[in-house]
Design a protein around this nucleic acid. Structure first.
Length: 445
RNA sequence: UCCGUAGUAGCUCAAUUGGCAGAGCAAUCGGCUGUUAACCGAUGGGUUCUUGGUUCAAGUCCAAGCUACGGAGCCA
């Protein structure tokens, strides 16, 4: 009985008989010679069926295979430059073949398809090379984020998904019937993180978040994954150091572990290799000034109108992209106007119209991937802000209590996983960064 | 929600001024000992998004609707 192997390890088995189990990714026939490209989840290997090396029955099975048919193949591994695959350069000379199922009319062919068709067949699309590569990189990004934080002394502390009240009350919430009472799906774990740092010092939560916002762009999902670190006794500058170190580590890990995947999705590696410390740090004031200057240099009136901004306004998508394009690495923009940010962000001493907030904008037009801030730790100020926003103190009772029992300055941020994946993979839409995207008009499959 | 574009074979698309519904790929059958989106030959395949209207005649023109895509707002 031959050893069952995974195709990613095929190089170690040259000259030996092995068994691989998987699905037919592609097949080309040359009469008495059949080339079957088999994928097993770990990689792809060309399996060659030659009628003189196997029984007539086995050869007929090989000849009748269709795309995505499932098989168990046994044969000898040999090195051959001509063999395609992942890793490629190795093939299996089929000795015997066990057919599990002939797949009929598999809808996704090796040719091009439209977005709607592919999204309707997402449960099959994930088998395709490109999606396989992206989702593997996604997994590494998540692991790298967590590894880095764990190594820096952060503790993973999970926060609830069903919550009694709004996190930020800025966007629309999904409502849940909680035994006759109204509850909501979480938009952020941040408020709970703020409680948890008082127990553990440095924490992060990682999970899905939900926004019932009717936004329909390449940068939005209804359900997306966010990783949110929170740190006690941390200021904005230290926060930026953490974000920068973390992002650099993630990019480094992807470059180290996924050369082949990046090749499959045709990502420009040089642009990723350039992502090293330090990142530029500019203030909102500075960013607005840069936009004003850019506007003056532009002749096209339409473009000019798109980029126009008054101090105090939040950046729209075009402005954000324009600022990011001024740099070839991610750029921090800090000290946003207090009015456009959340109620818990600390005002700047002496300039209460701006707050101790910072966004990290990814290069190449990918926009904001991280948003963070110093949190207000004074009870009176926080109460005043909650009243001003009309949020109602009752729902925030426990959150306010954190400012009564040993309050301390602290800061934190949230990194959007899908946006990070889109940037690192160079994708133009978030729908490919998550296995099953939830979009405004899509919850199937 | 607003603005723009599109909807024709399983998929990707074509169809001139309103005049017989087409191609490539996929599928099926046959051929081929080194294919890389193989190639060669043959075969089958249509509610032209829906409803209504104009016309001798509508894929094409008109009206309404549905769906998708792109962008904006909002945000990670």
């Amino acid at each position: 009985m031959a050893e069952i192997i995974r195709i990613k390890d095929i190089a170690r088995y040259v000259g030996r008989e092995v068994t691989v189990r998987g699905w037919v990714y592609n097949k080309t026939g040359k009469g008495r010679l059949q080339f079957i490209l088999l994928r097993d989840g770990s990689g792809q290997a060309q399996c060659v069926a030659f009628n003189k090396e196997m029984s007539p029955e086995a050869f007929e099975i090989a000849r009748g295979l269709t795309q995505e048919s499932s098989v168990i193949i046994t044969g000898e591994v040999r090195a051959d430059e001509r063999a395609p695959g992942i890793p490629g350069g190795f093939e299996i000379g089929i000795r015997s073949i066990e057919l599990l199922q002939v797949a009929n009319d598999y809808p996704i062919t090796p040719k091009e398809h439209g977005t709607e068709f592919l999204m309707n067949h997402r449960h099959l699309w994930v088998r395709s090379n490109r999606q396989w590569a992206i989702l593997r990189i996604r997994a590494t990004i998540i692991k790298a984020l967590r590894d880095w934080l764990d190594d820096q002394g952060f503790l993973l502390v999970d926060t609830p998904i069903i919550t009694p009240a709004a996190g930020e009350e800025t966007t629309t919430l999904f409502e849940v019937d909680y035994f006759g009472e109204m509850a909501y799906l979480a938009q952020t774990g941040q408020l709970y993180n703020e409680a948890n740092i008082m127990a553990f010092g440095k924490v992060y939560c990682f999970g899905p978040t939900f926004r019932a916002e009717k936004s329909k762009t390449r940068r939005h999902l209804i359900e997306f994954w966010m990783l949110e670190p929170e740190i006690a006794f941390c200021n904005l500058e230290e926060l930026m150091d953490i974000e920068e170190g973390m992002v650099c580590y993630v990019v480094e890990q992807v470059l180290e572990k996924h050369q082949r995947e990046l090749e499959i999705i045709e990502r420009d590696i040089d642009k990723l290799a350039a992502i090293t410390s330090p990142f530029a740090r500019i203030s909102y004031d500075d960013a607005v000034a840069r936009l004003h200057q850019l506007c003056e240099e532009i002749d096209d009136p339409e473009r000019k109108a798109e980029l126009a901004i008054e101090w105090g306004e939040d950046f729209g998508s075009p402005q954000e992209t324009a600022i990011a394009e001024m740099f070839d690495k991610p750029v921090f923009v800090y000290h946003y106007p207090t009015a456009v940010k959340a109620f818990y962000m600390t005002p700047v001493a002496g300039r209460p119209e701006i707050c101790r907030s910072v966004d990290l904008l990814a290069p190449e037009g990918y926009g904001e991937i991280i948003g963070g801030s110093e949190r207000i730790h004074e009870l009176e100020l926080l109460e005043a802000n909650i009243d001003k926003m009309g949020l109602g103190r009752e729902a925030y009772q426990w959150y306010l209590e954190l400012r009564k029992f040993g309050t301390a300055p602290h800061a934190g941020f949230g990194i959007g996983i899908e946006r990070t994946v889109a940037w690192i993979c160079g994708l133009n839409h978030l729908r490919e960064t998550i296995p099953y995207a939830r979009l405004l008009n899509r919850k199937y499959p």
